[in-house]
Measured scan of single mutants.
Amino acid sequence: MLDDRARMEAAKKEKVEQILAEFQLQEEDLKKVMRRMQKEMDRGLRLETHEEASVKMLPTYVRSTPEGSEVGDFLSLDLGGTNFRVMLVKVGEGEEGQWSVKTKHQMYSIPEDAMTGTAEMLFDYISECISDFLDKHQMKHKKLPLGFTFSFPVRHEDIDKGILLNWTKGFKASGAEGNNVVGLLRDAIKRRGDFEMDVVAMVNDTVATMISCYYEDHQCEVGMIVGTGCNACYMEEMQNVELVEGDEGRMCVNTEWGAFGDSGELDEFLLEYDRLVDESSANPGQQLYEKLIGGKYMGELVRLVLLRLVDENLLFHGEASEQLRTRGAFETRFVSQVESDTGDRKQIYNILSTLGLRPSTTDCDIVRRACESVSTRAAHMCSAGLAGVINRMRESRSEDVMRITVGVDGSVYKLHPSFKERFHASVRRLTPSCEITFIESEEGSGRGAALVSAVACKKACMLGQ
Rank of each mutant, 00 (worst) to 15 (best):
D4W: 06
R7Y: 13
E9D: 10
E9Y: 08
A10C: 15
K13V: 14
L20V: 02
E27K: 00
D29Y: 08
R36H: 06
M37I: 14
K39P: 02
L45S: 14
L45A: 09
R46F: 12
E48G: 11
E51G: 09
E52S: 13
L58I: 12
Y61W: 06
T65H: 06
T65Y: 09
T65L: 09
G72H: 00
S76H: 05
L77R: 00
M87D: 02
I110L: 11
M115V: 11
L134P: 00
D135H: 02
D135P: 03
M139F: 14
K143I: 00
P145F: 00
F152H: 10
P153S: 11
H156P: 13
H156L: 07
I159M: 12
K161P: 15
L164E: 12
W167A: 13
G175S: 05
N179P: 14
R186G: 04
I189Y: 04
R191S: 10
F195E: 05
D198G: 01
V200D: 00
V207C: 06
C213R: 11
Y215N: 13
D217G: 02
G223M: 01
G229Y: 03
Q239S: 13
E242W: 02
E242Q: 05
T255Y: 14
F260I: 04
G264K: 11
D267L: 06
E272N: 08
D274M: 00
D274A: 01
L292Q: 14
Y297D: 13
G299I: 03
R303I: 01
R303C: 04
L307K: 05
R308D: 05
V310Q: 14
E312I: 12
F316T: 07
S321W: 05
Q323D: 07
T326E: 06
T332I: 11
S336D: 08
Q347K: 09
Y349W: 01
I351K: 04
I351T: 02
T354E: 15
D365A: 07
R368Q: 06
E372Y: 01
C382Q: 03
R392L: 13
S396I: 14
V406Y: 00
D409N: 10
V412G: 08
Y413A: 08
H416L: 15
F419I: 04
P432D: 15
S433A: 10
C434D: 01
E440T: 11
G444Y: 14
G448V: 08
A449R: 09
A456D: 05
